[in-house]
């Protein structure tokens, strides 16, 4: 098992050279004032995105969706249907962009890969014993390797929240480094399960920890706990990727996941991206929505913009 291998050489490479330097660094990050952070997120939520801006935002949001199914009841049929929808979100309008990816369990990667073949839609797979992540590291790594072998373009791992909350940052770091290595060419999304980390200070520390360890994306949640993506925790993570790039030159993506269901919400998140990290992140290579029902709402809004009429659920597909 590789230990503490620096992910890349940059200004902060030495930060993770030992448990104590890592701890000192993470605890030395500026604090987060809860009320101020949430007020800023709420204020950006009042932006009024109309007409051409709305059309742009909706298409952008569709292109950023990681269309997700993560159920015990997932079957090849269900995943194939999802893949088809990712490639042709609106069968009545072929100008609709494809989603960024479909996101499935490792055992469904091959099916998903086939369903999206040739479309440019990526296949992402949750791994590392998603969502709890409570297995031995070699089991997690095997999970990752299986998904990658099956053709996954992207791996969504969960961090060891228990270790993080116990202050064992190096353990979390080492695991991410190991998973990153197991990913090979696949891009790695690191899920913090922000709802379990509880405080914004923890979310900021986890963000930096993940980026230092080589995450390609930092991701809020599994969608399996009570509190998932919120404007405030996503804003905080956008600040982190912005600051990390300023210090290291390395750009990292952000993926809020869980709880984003309406176009209005999605557009608010894009405003957060636009006014926090900036336009470099307004691209599905750097920002994603982990969602399932969101896509249909985006499609209905898209139809409304095109026709001037309100659409209804019968005019979008239920897959």
């Amino acid at each position: 098992m590789p230990t503490s291998a620096p992910a890349a050489a940059h200004a902060l490479t030495d930060v993770a050279s030992s448990d104590s330097t890592l701890r000192r660094f993470l605890h030395g990050l500026p604090g987060v004032d809860t009320v101020g952070l949430e007020a800023r997120a709420a204020a950006l939520g009042t932006r009024s995105i109309k007409t051409t801006a709305k059309a742009y935002a909706i298409d952008l949001a569709i292109s950023m969706v990681d269309l997700t199914t993560l159920e015990g009841a997932d079957t090849p049929g269900k995943v194939r249907a999802l893949g088809t929808k990712a490639v042709h979100p609106d069968p009545t309008d072929r100008t609709t962009p494809t989603t960024a990816a479909v996101c499935v369990y490792p055992d469904m990667v091959a099916v998903a890969k086939e369903a999206v073949a040739g479309s440019g839609v990526k296949v992402a797979s949750v791994a590392t014993a998603f969502p709890a992540g409570r297995v031995a590291l070699d089991v997690k790594l095997a999970d990752v390797r299986e998904a990658v072998a099956a053709g996954a373009d992207e791996i969504d791992m969960v961090i060891d929240r228990g270790a993080f909350l116990a202050g064992r940052y190096m353990k979390v770091y080492d695991e991410i480094v190991a998973v990153k290595e197991a990913c090979g060419a696949a891009r790695l999304k690191v899920i913090f399960e922000t709802g379990e980390l509880s405080t914004y200070d923890n979310i900021r520390r986890a963000s930096w920890l993940g980026m230092l360890a080589g995450a390609d994306f930092i991701k809020t949640s599994t969608g399996k706990v009570a509190v998932n993506a919120t404007p405030a925790n996503t804003l905080l993570m956008l600040e982190a990727v912005r600051d990390f790039r300023a210090q290291t030159g390395i750009q990292v993506g952000v993926k809020p996941a869980g709880g984003i269901r309406t176009s209005k919400d999605a557009v608010k998140f894009l405003v957060l991206v636009n006014e926090t990290a900036g336009e470099d992140w307004l691209d599905n290579h750097w920002f994603r929505f982990g969602a399932s029902s969101l896509l249909n709402d985006l499609l209905m809004q898209r139809q409304k913009l095109a026709t001037g009429r309100y659409s209804g659920p019968d005019y979008v597909t239920v897959d």
């Binding site: 932006r47 995105i49 109309k50 007409t51 801006a53 742009y56 952008l60 307004l282």
Partner: peptide, 11 residues
């Protein structure tokens, strides 16, 4: 201001 995401007038 980011140019990719121009906010249309919202008077």
């Amino acid at each position: 201001m980011a140019s990719a995401f121009e906010y249309a007038p919202a008077p």
